[in-house]
Design a protein around this nucleic acid. Sequence first.
DNA 1: TCAACGAATTAGAATAGTTCTAATGTGTAG
DNA 2: CTACACATTAGAACTATTCTAATTCGTTGA
Lengths: 141, 141
Amino acid sequence: MSKDRPYSALVHRLKTAGLRPTRQRLALAKLLFESPGGDDRHITAEQLHAEALGESVRVSLATVYNSLHQFTEAGLLREVVVEPGRSYFDTNVSDHHHFYFEDSGELQDIPGEHVQMESLPAAPAGTRVARVDVIIRLSGD
Amino acid sequence: MSKDRPYSALVHRLKTAGLRPTRQRLALAKLLFESPGGDDRHITAEQLHAEALGESVRVSLATVYNSLHQFTEAGLLREVVVEPGRSYFDTNVSDHHHFYFEDSGELQDIPGEHVQMESLPAAPAGTRVARVDVIIRLSGD
DNA sequence: TCAACGAATTAGAATAGTTCTAATGTGTAG
DNA sequence: CTACACATTAGAACTATTCTAATTCGTTGA
């Protein structure tokens, strides 16, 4: 407890997650969580990388991947796979599901109350449910 | 209507789907639908290719991909994406969902009655629901 | 039966997304 | 301030998939 003055919420968030708040991780976290709509973003690694470069944040693609995975492991993000070779990271980690627009490739949260499982089958012996993914795939009318 | 004698169910199935029953497509369809457990197989393109080669069926990987996609479009198969770079083709096209064993990478059908949506949200204007995917991800106890 | 045409197959190159490697740089505990 | 573990990097490598252009095959009609 010494120089904790410019101790932003992001720094705290990273430290709490056991991640050193490096320049790159802070910049990426800022883009992810402090953009408008930051509690409901769906972004790919490439998109985030492009966004960072656009903001003149020097960061390699490898670091973007590393950080996204670390954030995901730490529970700060959630990964949603919609197609082979297209996986999104969602800043909303609460219990909710997704609309996937097959035509545009966009992903959208469904407010949590709207979809509920009527009865989850029991997990087979020796396993536990890590997550339940529900994706409602939409195509043009 | 001339020489329709050795007109196997598979040939019929392909023709009905608008696909010419070529040697390769027939061989792949046979592996997919007439193996033990053929109404509940989960297989990747690479696996099917290997299986075909193992049975001395000469077929290229490109054709395996083509056929799998054509079968899927025709409603004979269903594609299930579980991880970036891992997508399965399911011979069970009825309405049902999946267990995914994260440790082994295996996919397993959940009997249809066991999971039901309590209330599906309405599809946004101008779209229709193409499919609802539910994947229950399991990890070691 | 066979010619001819469109459709299917092929090997291999190309692409996309992601991970790896080994060298360099950085945050932090003491 | 130093030292060391951890993080970052460019670029190569890897995996899954798609594309390309040449070849082969299935079907239709005479």
